[in-house]
Design a protein around this nucleic acid. Structure first.
Lengths: 236, 236
DNA sequence: GATTTGAGGATTGTCTACAATGCTGCTCAC
DNA sequence: GTGAGCAGCATTGTAGACAATCCTCAAATC
């Protein structure tokens, strides 16, 4: 029985862990969900008091968040929540597209029997969720889908780069530019990707993933544009 | 006049900077050059005393080094210098190859007049150094070469991933598996890459970079194999 | 009125001390 | 002799206080 990894990273669920790891996930969620607004300043002291800890662990957590691109820190000035811009969105998706295509190609070559079964199971669950119209779990499921493929690539540096470095920022864009999803099409694309991986067709799998992510980019960009420049429609 | 960036990152040269930034580069060099041996344990207290500072900044520096893959930290256990293994070398170069090929393609599309001139200038300097047999500057020059192309890609996330995340570890492999270089061939390859970029031929530029890096991988792997398994030749 | 300059306050950087955890090497039972 | 269990020590995690830097805002000068 596989341990059904529900979250992006699995810090053994808060228990008996270090303070930094405990509050890190909480601050992550706050940022991703926009409770800490993009671009807003983060006060170490205030943040520490909010979680009832001292500034030491808080600073370490902020450094971790900087590594995940969720926070920008400037020496002697302080930390700010990352801002969402069209240019960065494009840079981010450009990179993500390349990396996940690579992950797909590698997965097609290297995926294990067990991992493939897991992937099929997840896909079927997604399709079932879709039929029930359960959109929240779809979003989570989509994260898991990409996550599993990345793991199946077997390249630990690739995994670290995507999951440890890029994925949280991606979640932030997706959450805040709440693309209530194009689920039917997306999950159809998922199926074709899994089929290509199962067939060991690396080139096709990579190509399909590239297109799949490009679809996601366009979708997110559209929403972000509506958010950042609502003046045009509001003025007239 | 461009400021001739000599180092991987330019922290305004130690002056008036934060302690962390000052010692970070020093520890980096110690690790890359092997003064801190791969796999050896790092004692926070001892390291702090060595540089005459307290444990706070030392811990922050170690976290930065973890981000750069030069150090592995385990909660409540401590930090170790990264170990060099064949598998990781392959993972690392696999990823690097994809990312730098991407950088090359983007550079071919987006490089500015000024950046291209800089690149030509660097190439000519490399060829001149080669003629003089100046191998140390060749190595540095090679780093700069890739660095400039990465910058020319214009994708800030790509830059951050490669330069902030991967490049120091790459330097470590290259330094310690001291490939005294295949300079003639490498620089010939450099020239063809620049020509492709100048011609705006993204596909060719990416392809050439892929092959160029694959050459580097084989070279480094060979040296590493000799280092990790010298028993065979020593026993008999 | 606009610009500069400096004092005051707020925030970040660093240090020291203490608490919590993991590791080492001994004793003791089998 | 070998393995388990415990005590002591070394090391990391956390807290709180002090030092250094930056930002704000008002007063003074042009």
């Amino acid at each position: 029985m596989q341990p059904t990894k529900p979250s992006i990273d699995n810090p053994a669920s808060d228990k008996n862990q270090t303070l930094v790891e405990q509050i890190l996930v909480q601050i992550q969620e706050s940022i991703i969900k926009g409770e800490l607004r993009p671009g807003s300043k983060i006060n170490e002291q205030a943040l520490a008091e909010k979680y009832g800890i001292s500034r030491g662990p808080t600073r370490e957590a902020l450094q971790q968040l900087e590594r995940q691109r969720l926070v920008v820190r400037i020496p002697h000035v302080g930390a700010r929540v990352a801002t969402l811009t069209i240019e960065e969105l494009n840079d981010l998706y450009e990179l993500r597209s390349t990396l996940e295509a690579m992950a797909c190609e590698l997965a097609a070559k290297r995926i294990s029997e067990q991992q493939l079964n897991q992937l099929w199971a997840l896909l079927e669950k997604q399709e079932a969720d879709l039929a029930r119209g359960d959109s929240y779990f779809q979003q989570e499921g989509d994260v898991d889908f990409h996550y599993q493929i990345i793991r199946a690539s077997g390249n630990r540096h690739l995994q670290e780069t995507l999951i440890g470095g890029l994925y949280h920022l991606l979640r932030m864009y997706r959450y805040q530019c709440t693309s209530s999803s194009r689920p039917v099409r997306a999950i159809a694309e998922h199926r074709r990707i899994v089929e290509a991986i199962a067939a060991g067709d690396a080139e096709l799998a990579g190509l399909l993933m590239r297109r799949h992510i490009e679809q996601g980019r366009q979708n997110t960009q559209q929403r972000l544009q509506q958010l950042t420049a609502p003046a045009a429609s509001a003025v007239s």
